[in-house]
Design a protein around this nucleic acid. Structure first.
Lengths: 348, 348
DNA sequence: ATGAAAGCGCTAACAC
DNA sequence: GTGTTAGCGCTTTCAT
């Protein structure tokens, strides 16, 4: 049994109500306040948050459910959320689903049991569906993966545009046999594939894409087969940082040079994409903004629950690096370790 | 106000005690149990965890305080902790300190207010000191950074041995002017530096090391200056994944080839270290085991608070890749994108 | 400015 | 097997 407000009251010779007032900066005479503070310090008292939450009926807690916090995209978004929550005096309850609907459901239950103030969620495809049928009991904002949405606030990337940007870029660099690997568990993966397919068709090219679990291993395995086969592409687009890593690993394993044998472009401007090989061309997402925007939508809704659902669509930024510039290989060949030569931004 | 156990009791025509018993799988007649379950479903009832925790006086919660969850080392450790907690039916409360003692103190306070069952903590140097003077009120396990420890259970890497392994390896490859960059905020960084210095001196070499904030930027900045100056090393050791990335970026920015102009070795076997340049020689830490071991120490202590503090020391594994093999550059020169040629493991 | 007391939702004696 | 009740630690009227 730990120190309670009652112990403090006793020690300070006041009632528990007074102690409570001191804690919440209520109206208390200066000298009593002093006595209470002294008692708190002497006893090492810390208020019990469970009790406080039970009494006040608000948890001051934001739930954050993502697929895998090891994915740098979600770590960054998570920090954005955390920073905003922290400024608002709220806790963040973070959960990983591993793209597993069972776990997702479990954590959703947990959020309810914690009576969270609000929820920020990157749902799997399966969950997205359920969310429409069984709406959540508390305010929620969808991030990264909103699908057609409708019921919820959301903040997402313009996935089709971004995919189109990559295709355009590869096309303009002379590539025609452009393949794609996309995450199969999220609306985001599907949208990027849609954008890719549409863009290819618009150019009279034949799209060739694979849907995979969004992991490094799956990407490496699939690409190893694909690159070894007869229909190997000359350029590849990967729909997130994990698959992108898988593509690079597969290319290296098979001894394919980048961009000589295979041009590579993808999503997520992680640190390593700048230093690997000739540098990788990627779509940079405004990761921190995604978290911040989500929190701001959430706070708006908390203050005004009647609001119509809003969808914030952010634009990616295409960072061109050597991995898609086979047409000018001379600039790269002379020095193995200065692949930054071709770095720059287009389509801001 | 949300649905409470009372509403369920009413709807099912039983007392709240009975509902509670149903929830905790207590002795209840089958048909009443059924009625209660029906009521729960009909009302969409979910128990209030704050109330339950208040009443039962245990939070079923493990606190986890790390410096930065974006650091893949901590993300991995975190998953180890989470998995173990999950199996034991416990929540994990995760907090990032950014190596900032203020935030660290704040989160420690939070943990107390949440009345966590136990705590797993990677403290800064400054906090490590305070922990000895003001012992925590609840069971805690130190990870990654235990210092001399004494008061707490801990699980750490054999940092001196690992640093020594890297020096040995570089030495045997013919390098003599071996520098090092180490994190300045953790006991771990200091230990690795100690090991490095001792090892260098034992060989009659002059250690040359820098203590830095453990970030990519700090590493890149420091190394950029160092490499451009007159006392540039011919090999460098980086004490964690972030500094290692900084080293690589600096080398690239200055046009230094790896390992031709600069050999590079470091800690943390992250995915990208395998694909960058000729592959980076690193010490692989048993990241998942660290989390698991920490949880198991914690559970032991919860069951038996009288136990003397235990320290678990794990060994790293040195994975040799091309970044330290300048002596055989021919094998690497022929193909820019197959740097795995020299991969292998020593010192298991 | 301060205290007395009710009650948030739940579990655990204790009765029957 | 089930109901009654006390109380976990806190905040918040309502008195004074």
């Amino acid at each position: 049994m730990s120190i309670s407000i009652k112990d403090v009251a006793e020690k300070a010779g006041v009632s528990v109500a007074t102690v409570s007032r001191v804690l919440s900066e209520g109206p208390v005479r200066a000298d009593t306040k002093e006595r209470v503070h002294a008692a708190i310090k002497a006893l090492g008292y810390r208020p019990n948050l469970s009790a406080r939450r039970l009494r006040t009926q608000h948890a001051q807690t934001i739930g954050l459910i993502v697929s895998d916090i090891r994915n740098p995209f979600f770590t960054a978004v998570g920090r954005g959320v955390e920073d905003a929550a922290y400024r608002a005096g709220m806790r963040v309850l973070l959960c990983n689903t591993d793209e597993n609907v069972e776990r997702e459901r479990m954590y959703l239950r947990l959020m309810q049991e914690e009576r969270v103030t609000g929820l920020i969620l990157a749902p799997t495809l399966a969950m997205l569906d359920q969310l429409q049928k069984n709406p959540l009991q508390f305010p929620a904002v969808l991030i990264d993966r909103a699908g057609a949405g409708g019921l919820y606030d959301s903040v997402v990337l313009d996935n089709r545009e971004a995919a189109n940007t990559l295709v355009e870029h590869l096309f303009s660099e002379g590539y025609r046999r452009i393949g794609g690997v996309f995450g199969q568990t999220s609306a985001t993966g599907l949208e990027r594939r849609d954008g890719y397919c549409a863009s290819m068709k618009a150019k009279g090219l034949k799209p060739d894409s694979r849907l995979l679990p969004p992991t490094v291993d799956a990407g490496e395995r699939e690409m190893s087969e694909w690159l070894a086969g007869p229909d190997a592409p000359e350029a590849i687009i990967a729909s997130n940082g994990l698959l992108l890593m898988g593509v690079v690993k597969a290319a290296q394993r098979l001894g394919r040079t980048i961009p000589g044998d295979l041009a590579v472009a993808g999503f997520d401007n992680e640190d390593w994409t700048e230093v690997v090989g000739p540098g990788l061309t990627v779509i940079e997402q405004p990761v921190h903004d995604i978290g911040r925007n989500a929190m701001s939508l959430l706070f708006d809704r908390l203050q005004n629950p009647g609001l119509a659902p809003r969808k914030v669509v952010l634009s990616g930024r295409c960072i061109v690096r050597g991995s898609t510039l086979a047409s000018k290989p001379a600039a790269l060949a002379e020095n193995r370790s200065t692949p930054l030569a071709a770095a720059g931004a287009m389509n801001p």
